[in-house]
Design a protein around this nucleic acid. Structure first.
Lengths: 343, 343
DNA sequence: CTGTTAGCGCGTTCAC
DNA sequence: GTGAACGCGCTAACAG
């Protein structure tokens, strides 16, 4: 009972004022770094805060200054399992970190159903966050429109190719460049008879990567050598290899839209009796953790997902600080080819 | 300009009241499901809300009713990379989902430094969330104490072995049971000369798993056959195998504290020329995604991380609904041994 | 059943 | 430099 007054009730700004013998208006000024506070008062207030263990109430502060110090990270995925992918998790973690260091809390919202999308739209309308990070793996427009009425900054995780009514600044990887580079890497080795396994059609990244491949192939490009997968998973890679079977003996390599697909392709190729990379070279995209766990280790295009999350939030932070950023702004993050064993 | 009144200014509850021709107190009652609203008024209010696109302001509501409809998921990790682990990511995703369905937003807080821990403590004091999920992979007490003054429900992700001053309900896996079972599985095959690779000492799960191993081994347990790793990573498994090298030819199997370590052990064993499982059987723990990607596929103890996140949040939700839960409550989630190729 | 009113805790003019 | 008062948008308790 001799402990420092077991504060059973909430201590408010008034309590602090009383303790410091000033009006609570002064305390408020002190808290918000206003110039007009005598050093003497400041000292007393600091002491009072210390003693009373005062912490400003977040809701009240939000209400008064119309800011929440919260940023929403909205992930749009078909399956919630996507959140386990290293690229998503890394971007989320780093965004969280960056925003946290800047004094913002990050709330993660998952849009994977009608219901959840509806809930999120409601939330956005209720002004519960100061800004939004839209991490979308599909190009579904339903979500992008909920920000129209909330006049708050938004940053997208992918550059949209088609021009929608509304647009926001985006941070994306140089997908085309990456795929182009790794294709050239194969070509330079004389492996010119190449096939391509494309990612799902709904994904912008998917088409950009295909575009990079086309670019590198130039006149050699042959659409009959492209398999269009329905998703980014291993199984799709296996199906692709099956599809390619008739022409396999005429192929020098297979360029894949991502690592998972590449793994599937390699697995199936092996079952068909082909050696990788001796008979057929295979490349991936992402440089996900499994790329180095495979045998052979994957030659792939590396993209830094941590960087993705960081740059997205840095851009958002600048907007939150009042900087005006053109809606059309697109920051392209570099990719890098990592040569290992599979090609 | 003929559009439905381009609402440039925030529409408040008063606007709705005016439109519906009732006092805003009535609108508030309507919004909060209060009985005492005539069906006629209700209809008019509903219409007004519809037309005005009204959405209650979250901060104001939080301030008035002293609830935020927010839950904080606090992850305590040494390295932020831990967030990439499937078990962590899955628990987070499922908790998010479960809480979201119940109308709560989940904000993720990462405690990985002095600074961040300090920030989080501040936040908790500022009453910014209604409840807390503490997902801790270490048994650092610094965080557990920040909830003392915030009189809000807390659920832990691990049962603490040592009795701390404060304690909260916890949801954990039957770690000991799992490791005990899989060890018995080996013993039953006549593989009785077993070594153990233990996880890092700071982790309760780590010691619980070791305990399960001891339990199964009974009198056969020999501490010189235990390697104590510093972390949960692949490299530690490799080091363990190196350490065990002199006794390898006398071993039937190696039980590992988790999948990563098991993979490291297998890799190193191969380099030494041992076949798995023919010469030496190896088991993991977690059943992480890589367990099936390895060759040989890992025989391991499966734990459902999604379930972990779900049960934790369900428990928290019940507490948020007013149910009183004993601080000492520990819900143990079942584990299951999955036999594949490595043992 | 409904209108009125007093807070919730804090920011922000204003005079002084 | 400082205090008083009002407002943020909404809830809840109280009359009526």
């Amino acid at each position: 009972m001799s402990r420092t007054a077991i504060a059973t009730k909430k201590v408010t700004i008034r309590d602090v004022a009383r303790l410091a013998e000033v009006s609570y208006g002064t305390v408020s000024r002190y808290l918000n770094g206003n110039e007009h506070v005598s050093t003497d008062a400041a000292r007393r207030i600091a002491k009072a805060i210390e003693e009373s263990h005062y912490t400003p109430n977040k809701a009240a502060r939000s209400l008064a200054q119309q800011r929440t110090s919260t940023v929403a990270f909205i992930v749009q995925v078909e399956s919630i399992a996507t959140l386990l992918q290293a690229s998503t998790a890394a971007a989320m973690a780093e965004a969280n970190q960056t925003l946290g260091d800047a004094g913002y809390q990050m709330v993660t919202l998952i849009a994977n159903s009608e219901d959840s999308t509806q809930r999120i739209a409601q939330l956005v309308q209720s002004d519960f966050a100061d800004g939004y990070l839209l991490f979308s793996l599909s190009e579904d427009d339903s979500l992008i429109n909920i920000f129209r009425t909330a006049h708050r900054p938004v940053v997208l995780s992918e550059a949209s190719d088609r021009s929608t009514a509304v647009s926001y600044p985006a941070v994306d990887f140089a997908n085309a460049d990456g795929q182009c580079s790794i294709t050239r890497y194969l070509l330079d080795q004389g492996k010119i008879r190449l096939a391509y396994v494309c990612g799902p059609g709904y994904s912008p990244s998917s088409s950009k990567r295909l575009h990079g491949f086309k670019q590198a192939m130039g006149a050699y490009f042959d659409d009959s050598h492209v398999y269009y997968a329905d998703d980014w998973e291993i199984a799709s890679g296996e199906m692709a290899a099956v599809e390619f079977q008739p022409m396999l003996h005429d192929l020098d390599g297979i360029v894949c839209a991502n690592d998972n697909i590449a793994i599937g392709v390699i697995n199936q190729l092996r079952r068909f009796g082909y050696r990788v990379p001796e008979d057929i070279a295979v490349t991936g995209f992402d440089d996900s953790p499994i790329a180095t766990m495979m045998d052979p280790k994957l030659t792939t295009v590396r993209q830094d997902s941590w960087l993705h999350g960081r740059v997205m939030s840095q851009l958002l932070l600048r907007m939150l600080h009042g900087e005006v950023v053109d809606h059309q702004t697109v920051k392209l993050l570099p990719t890098e080819i990592v040569t290992r064993q599979s090609a």
